[in-house]
């Protein structure tokens, strides 16, 4: 699997560390139902067969967190954006 790092270009997946679901937002800790929302944020995950937005960290490259659109069935990469600025790049090089 290769991930098109917006900073470095297409790089082998071995250079990256995986975190998981990138659609989650850290809840407002001051909200009255913060505990329940944090519980969901920390533990509750869907495990989709198909399109998935996920965080990958280019540990052995630019050290940027990259939001990657990946199909969990085929490993086809739909695109990748830097977490920090949301700059879009092209999809799967194959």
């Amino acid at each position: 699997m290769r991930i098109p790092c917006p900073y470095c270009g297409a790089r082998d997946a071995h250079e990256f560390a995986y975190l998981g679901d990138a659609t989650l937002t850290r809840p407002d800790p001051a909200a009255p139902d913060a505990e329940g929302r944090f519980f969901d944020y920390v533990y509750q995950r869907t495990n989709p067969a198909g399109a998935h937005e996920e965080w990958w960290y280019h540990a052995q490259g630019c050290r940027q967190w990259v939001k990657v659109a990946r199909d969990t069935r085929t490993h086809a990469i739909g695109g990748a954006t830097l977490a920090r600025d949301g700059a879009a790049t092209s999809g799967d090089p194959a």
Binding site: W55, Y57, Q64, W65, L82, R84
Partner: peptide
């Protein structure tokens, strides 16, 4: 060492840019 660094980068880039 590596885990904390990665965590701090996550906090800075994803949580609190």
């Amino acid at each position: 060492a590596a885990k904390v660094y990665q965590h701090l980068e996550f906090c800075l880039q994803v949580l609190w840019p």
